[in-house]
């Protein structure tokens, strides 16, 4: 058996690949559910019902989709240029912390609401950028592989958040819980549905997905970034300023991950804790790959992950299947997606 590269990737297969990958992941996870003593079909029906079956479940699913779109975009733009930003988790937390810090400035409460939101969002994005520019700078200057440095900085970032919310930014009214002082009301994003947590951050995330798609597909910068990823030497020869392109990609990627944290604070929590993110940063990597690095596909992939996470929570209450099954399924779908992408590019010959 050997593999032969297709002359051009099959169109039909490229569309079917993510679906096939998700079905394969659900099949394997189904076996795990069956081993645990439950009917997989019942479990999946309960997951769908938990995610879409009620007004509350539906709004929670979309609330959860919001940060996942942003961290998914952050990974997608970086990976497209072969910048291995695995630091989405840390950038998310620093973005969230930056909003909480700005929230403590008394002048913020005096601003009109749209302006206050804009200031907070900019601060969150800037914090995420800074955290990615450090390892990216180390790569460009010293040749340090950014995979390991961004991974290690995730731990540093969460410890820094812990330091700040137990120290200078601790809320004195939180009964001793380590959490930051809540941001003022005028920096809170408006809700989209009454009596739910769904907030306008979803619209921001959707708009940014379209914007990032446009930049990647239609702008000179997007072309340069893709070229830098496919072949740095050829790109440099064609006149793409490599270092500048990679730094801009880093700003975009870190900024999006930081904004995810900022939006989560402005839309859902109003304050920061060290369990603000249930691995949103790492899930972003899976989402980007499931979307085949396409910014519009990120929306669908983020929705899939959110359905699994929200649905599995309510399913596990009914069936006593650990809700970790959602993490297992999402992680599996990354591996099956990699194989599916391979099959769109190669055919198997005997």
């Amino acid at each position: 058996m050997r593999f032969e590269r297709r002359e051009r990737p099959s169109r039909a297969l490229s569309v079917l690949a993510p679906l096939g990958a998700i079905v394969a992941a659900l099949l394997v996870a189904g076996v795990l559910i069956a081993i645990a003593g439950a009917n997989p079909l019942t479990a999946y029906a309960l997951i769908l019902d938990g995610a879409f079956g009620s007004r509350l479940g539906f709004s929670e699913t979309l609330t959860r989709t919001t940060p996942l779109i942003l961290t998914g975009l952050a990974a997608a733009v970086a990976f497209r240029a072969r910048v291995w930003n695995i630091g989405g988790e840390g950038q998310f937390y620093l973005g969230a912390l930056a909003v909480a810090a700005i929230g403590m400035v008394p002048a913020l409460a005096g601003l009109p609401s749209p302006l206050a939101i804009l200031v907070c969002a900019a601060a969150g994005a800037a914090a995420g950028m800074v955290l990615l520019l450090v390892p990216l700078g180390l790569r460009l200057r010293f040749g340090v592989d950014e995979v390991v440095t961004t991974l290690l900085l995730n731990f540093v970032a969460v410890l820094f958040v812990s330091l700040m919310i137990e120290g200078p930014m601790k809320d004195p009214l939180a009964f001793g819980w380590p959490q930051s002082v809540p941001i003022p009301d005028n920096a809170i994003l408006p809700t989209l549905m009454d009596r739910t947590r769904l907030h306008a951050g979803l619209l921001i995330a959707l708009a940014l997905a379209v914007a990032v798609w446009w930049v990647q597909a239609r702008s000179v910068f997007g072309l340069g970034a893709r070229a830098a990823g496919l072949s740095p030497r050829a790109a440099a020869f064609a006149g793409v300023p490599l270092a500048r392109t990679l730094l801009l990609v880093g700003c975009l990627s870190g900024g999006l991950a930081g904004l995810a944290g900022a939006v989560e604070v402005m839309g859902v929590k109003a304050y920061v804790t060290t369990d603000l993110s249930p691995n949103y940063g790492y899930s972003g990597i899976v989402i980007a790959m499931l979307a085949n690095l396409n910014p519009l596909g990120v929306i669908a992939a983020a929705l899939f992950s959110a359905v699994m996470f929200v649905g599995a929570d309510s399913m596990s209450r009914a069936l006593s299947i650990p809700s970790y099954i959602a993490d297992v399924t999402v992680a599996l779908s990354l591996l099956t997606m990699l194989v599916a992408i391979f099959l769109t590019q190669y055919r198997i010959r005997r």
Binding site: F79, I285, V286, D327, A331, L332, L334, L335, L338
Partner: peptide, 9 residues
């Protein structure tokens, strides 16, 4: 990406 997938899985 495969390695990260293995870690998550």
């Amino acid at each position: 990406v495969t390695g990260l997938g293995i870690t998550l899985f």
